[in-house]
Amino acid sequence: MTYQSSPTILPGIIGNAASIHALASQIGKIAVTDCPVLLKGETGTGKELFANAIHQLSDRKGEMIAVNCSAIPEHLFESLLFGHEKGAFTGADKNHDGFFAQAHNGTLFFDEIAELPLVHQPKLLRVLESKYFCRIGSSEKRHFTGRIISATHQNMSQRVKDKAFREDLFYRLNLFELTIPSLAQRREDIPLLVHYFSKQHKSMTFSQCAMDLFKYAVWPGNIRQLKNTIDKLVILADDDYLSAQCIHALSVCEADPDVLSKLAREIIELPIENKIKAIYDALVEAAMDQSGGNKTKAATLLGVHRKVIERRLHQITATASY
């Protein structure tokens, strides 16, 4: 199975799912403003990619500076964010521009904003309210002309209730609050993403069953996990054509039980009298077709013994003859 193109709906973002198109529409309207944006979404959904898309669509002249709030050493917070003057403290052997200065006329992206220590939150709030900051060791006020975008995978409202995050800062950051859909919420985009990630390495094709396996797999790590899985397959696979059997053998993903439950409910609603027999027969026929009529391969695809295939084929033939 091949896909000729990957539709780009935002800079660096591809997709066809309705949820992604709706989000892209919102971003198109918000990007041209100076308003702060809070991006919410599970781990691995691509929050930084969406932040970068907003930055590019804003047509800002400066750069986007990304800051991981969970990785800022507490004793370096003010120096890293606001900068410092030479001699301001031991080891400050030269002037240093902090993240606010680096994002001049650009975008300052605070990733994992919920992890920002409570002690530092008032300092960030002060800059957002006044639009001014000072380097350590200087009283000169510098004007911050950048835009703030924040991101988190946590429940910010709950963090506020737990007194782990300041309510006033929360409302300063989320004038526009956007939720990035999980991969489970945009499963129809999985074939496009698989194709896109595999093409970054080499030309590969996937059987329909292989692609279905990707679509119905569980992806707790979302797009990041899917990309890592494709990267593994490109290295581990012996052929440029990948079947579901190959993917099973390499144990890189597993079916989502919730999807299987949904599929079972859909089957129950079908206007068929003996649903179990109909599904058994359909599975065997599909496996035989996929394996080119090879019973052993068909049995492997279904995870059963060859005799199960032979018995079912005999019953299908007997029923048809009757």
Rank of each mutant, 00 (worst) to 15 (best):
A318W: 05
A18H: 14
N228I: 10
L49Q: 09
I30S: 01
I190N: 08
C253Y: 06
P73V: 11
Q208Y: 13
E78H: 08
L301P: 08
I279S: 13
D111W: 05
S25I: 00
E188M: 10
N68C: 06
K131V: 02
S243P: 02
Y3P: 05
R186C: 13
T145N: 15
F214A: 11
D212G: 10
F214C: 11
E140L: 13
F77M: 07
I13W: 10
V32R: 15
K199I: 12
I190R: 09
T33Y: 03
Q200G: 15
L128N: 08
C134S: 14
P11D: 14
K199M: 15
E48L: 00
V218I: 13
Q200S: 15
A264L: 06
E78P: 01
V160E: 01
K131E: 09
M204D: 06
P122E: 03
I27Y: 08
H55E: 11
Q225F: 10
T107Y: 02
V284Q: 05
T317D: 06
D59P: 01
R187V: 06
R187M: 00
F109Q: 06
S261T: 13
T179E: 02
A103P: 12
I149L: 00
R126T: 05
L10N: 04
G62N: 09
G46Q: 03
A88C: 09
V304S: 01
S150M: 11
L193H: 04
I316G: 06
G83Q: 02
P220Q: 12
E285P: 03
P181L: 02
Q185A: 13
G46V: 01
P271W: 02
L193F: 05
A217L: 04
Q208I: 15
T205Q: 14
L116W: 04
S198R: 11
V119F: 03
A101N: 12
A286W: 02
R172T: 00
T152E: 04
D111Y: 02
I54Y: 11
L236F: 12
A88F: 09
D97H: 10
S150K: 00
M156H: 06
A103D: 10
Q185I: 04
P36E: 04
H21I: 09
I30D: 05
A51I: 05
T205L: 12
H201A: 13
A320G: 03
G137K: 06
D97T: 15
H201E: 12
A24D: 08
G221Q: 01
H104M: 08
K47P: 07
Y241V: 03
Y322P: 02
A22F: 09
F165Y: 08
V308T: 15
A31W: 05
P7T: 04
I14Y: 10
T90C: 07
L10C: 08
S5G: 01
M204W: 13
E273I: 14
A286Y: 02
L38Y: 07
C69T: 05
L175E: 01
L263V: 07
S243L: 01
L226I: 02
R172H: 05
R224K: 07
P191A: 03
E266Q: 11
H143R: 13
N95R: 09
L183H: 12
G46M: 07
Q4G: 15
L80W: 02
A255C: 13
S157V: 04
D240E: 11
G41V: 06
Y3T: 12
